[in-house]
């Protein structure tokens, strides 16, 4: 009796080999990436990197460089990521400096993007000579994985952050000049949350100022918040929701004028004319907020 076997043993061998090869390539000796770019960092390291970029911007005032560094992190919208992190850090104690720096960078970056539309996305814009760092620091310039394997010391286009563009569109306030209250209005707009305290801060030239610390005190304690977290409204804007029945005192910056007796006020009932205009349901116990405008002396 002759033994007749088909070619299945070849397929079995191939499968055994394939599995062994994958185990070796994925588990025993996987590809080692040692030359990574910031966009591959773990989220918490990205957050640290963002803080460092904001603090470095605070030190050198170079918005172009800060923008390029942020672009390296590969966030879908660097501005949104900055604002989200600033808001998150603002809620944590001991991170006042970091959240202020993030807020200031967010505001300045947005102002820069508005003032120089061609530089909105540095990564996509064709570059001039003096901005070649954008090319090098662009995450898309990262080596392909194949190259990373074969060439552990690649020589990609190199970063040369040598240019020193100094933006002048966001004049910094003189630290010694205090902020004083210029205007105080009761806001009973039904489109605005009840008891909302809106603060607008301008410098001596009437320009909104971001990253200014606002201290608010009340019977139970003290809280701080910063201008610049809502650049879509104004880089000098900040707000806070007051609780009815609580009296607050507010100060803008260090040594600025203190505004006392801030508390939500009951709004008067709308007139028939106003009711006809608005679609909101009138309510007798609607709490109005305040809008405070500060300028530098």
């Amino acid at each position: 009796m002759t033994e007749r076997r088909g070619p299945w043993y070849l397929l079995t061998g191939l499968i055994i080999g394939l599995i062994s090869g994958l185990i070796y390539a994925w588990l025993l000796d996987p590809v080692q990436f040692v030359n990574t770019s910031p966009d591959s960092l773990r989220p918490e390291f990205k957050a640290d990197h963002r803080v460092l970029i904001a603090l470095a911007y605070e030190a050198d005032g170079n918005i172009v460089r800060a923008g390029q560094r942020l672009a390296l992190l590969g966030d879908q919208d660097p501005l949104v990521a900055l604002i989200a992190q600033a808001e998150q850090m603002q809620k944590q104690k001991g991170y006042e400096r970091e959240s202020a720096a993030l807020a200031r960078l967010a505001a300045d970056l947005q102002a820069y993007q508005l003032s120089v539309p061609t530089a909105v996305s540095a990564a996509e814009t064709p570059l001039e000579q003096n901005t070649q760092a954008v090319v090098m620091l662009n995450p898309t310039a990262t080596l392909a994985q194949e190259q990373m394997i074969s060439t552990p010391t690649p020589t990609p286009p190199q970063p040369r952050p040598t240019f020193t563009l100094r933006p002048t569109f966001t004049p910094r306030p003189i630290l010694s000049a205090p902020f004083i209250l210029r205007d105080r209005q009761l806001i009973c707009d039904s489109n605005v949350p009840q008891g909302l305290l809106q603060v607008l801060v301008f410098d001596g030239n009437g320009q909104p100022v971001s990253g200014i610390k606002i201290s608010i005190t009340f019977e139970q304690g003290e809280e701080h918040f910063y201008t610049g977290l809502y650049p879509e409204i104004s880089s000098g804007y900040a707000d806070y929701v007051m609780q009815p029945g609580t009296v607050y005192s507010l100060r803008v910056g260090e040594g600025g004028e203190t505004v006392n007796d801030l508390t939500p006020q009951k709004c008067p009932l709308p007139t028939a004319e106003e009711m006809a205009k608005t679609t909101a349901t009138p309510s007798a116990d609607r709490w109005g907020g305040w809008k405070l405008v500060f300028t530098q002396k």
Binding site: G17, L18, S20, G21, A25
Partner: peptide, 12 residues
């Protein structure tokens, strides 16, 4: 066949 499979696996 095993060797060929291993090479293919590693390439993949």
């Amino acid at each position: 066949a095993i060797l060929l499979g291993a090479v293919l696996g590693m390439l993949y």
